[in-house]
């Protein structure tokens, strides 16, 4: 299988000017995401997940290591990536259609007719047909995240990046959105890098789960998730599922014990 996104020996330091010290946010992280794969990264808060995501998205500079897509090194944002952020970050002055078009309009890759067609297509895919003329403020948190997802997919990226997109939702909506995401993903056929601090979310969604440890953030282990697709939410009660979840949990906990930290998962 071809590797789409390759991260090699990536290290990220933040300089704290006031204390003239540095924080090692990512330490020598190497990871490959295959074509069409759904890869999830789990780790406790502060382990560098968002930093990693922002670097891959081209929003954060990095000094050591490389990030490349299809063998080409990444510098700055590009049309080959699209991000679904934790905060839906929709423009309140644009309609839902206007928001779904936003990424395409910025990137200027499609003509007007195509943009409109794609906007309608992806709104339908995320189940929001009928809301075209609404404004983001009129939608629930879950619906806003669907718009966020439609906006990213409509831009036709090679790799879809998602940074804790469901973290702000209540647990019922979150579970529903997880199963919706799998349906959408099975149709959109994108390579996905999904970041979460919820082990159970990662195991349910992903083909492989990469576990990160904190301070400094490094990659601890990668788990293959063997469940066939399509997956239903009932899978979360499967003994095999719970076993994998528990293994990952122990890995993170042992780490935090060593660091004298409390994990919030």
């Amino acid at each position: 299988m071809a590797v789409k996104l390759q991260i090699d020996h990536l290290t990220k330091r933040y300089w704290l000017e006031r204390e003239s010290t540095q924080v090692l946010a990512l330490n020598d992280v190497s990871l490959g995401v295959n074509d069409g794969e759904f890869l999830a990264i789990v780790g406790p808060s502060g382990c560098g997940k968002t930093s990693l995501m922002n670097i891959v998205a081209g929003l954060l500079p990095y000094e050591e290591g490389t990030v490349s897509i299809d063998g080409k090194q990444v510098h700055g944002p590009g049309t080959d990536r699209a991000v679904v952020f934790q905060h839906s970050s929709l423009l309140p002055w644009r309609t839902i259609t206007g928001n779904v078009r936003y990424g395409m309009e910025m990137q200027k890759r499609f003509d007007e007719t195509t943009m409109q067609q794609r906007a309608e297509h992806f709104l339908k895919l995320v189940g929001l047909t009928g809301f075209e003329r609404h404004f983001p403020g009129e939608l629930s948190g879950g619906m806003q995240q669907r718009v966020n997802l439609a906006r990213a997919l409509a831009a036709d990226p090679v790799v879809l990046l998602m940074d804790e997109p469901f973290a702000a939702l209540d647990s019922q909506t979150r579970e529903f959105m997880q199963s919706e995401l799998l349906k959408i993903w099975s149709k959109a056929k994108k390579t996905v890098l999904f970041i979460t601090h919820q082990i159970n979310e990662a195991v349910y969604l992903a083909d492989r789960v990469a576990v990160m440890s904190s301070r400094p953030g490094r990659l601890k282990a990668i788990f293959d998730i063997p469940f066939s697709r399509p997956r239903t939410l009932a899978l979360k009660r499967d003994p095999k599922f719970l076993e994998i979840e528990d293994k990952i949990w122990q890995l993170i906990e042992e780490e935090s014990d060593r660091m004298g930290m409390v994990v919030e998962v």
């Binding site: 998205a57 081209g58 929003l59 944002p77 590009g78 049309t79 990536r81 699209a82 991000v83 952020f85 905060h87 970050s89 423009l91 002055w93 936003y102 990424g103 309009e105 910025m106 990137q107 831009a155």
Partner: peptide
Amino acid sequence: IDRDLLRAARAFCASDWQIFKTVAIP
């Protein structure tokens, strides 16, 4: 300027002029 919107605009390769028109002014 809303920092989340700015970040989203940047992620979609928006130019400064596009950010000015679509984020800063509204």
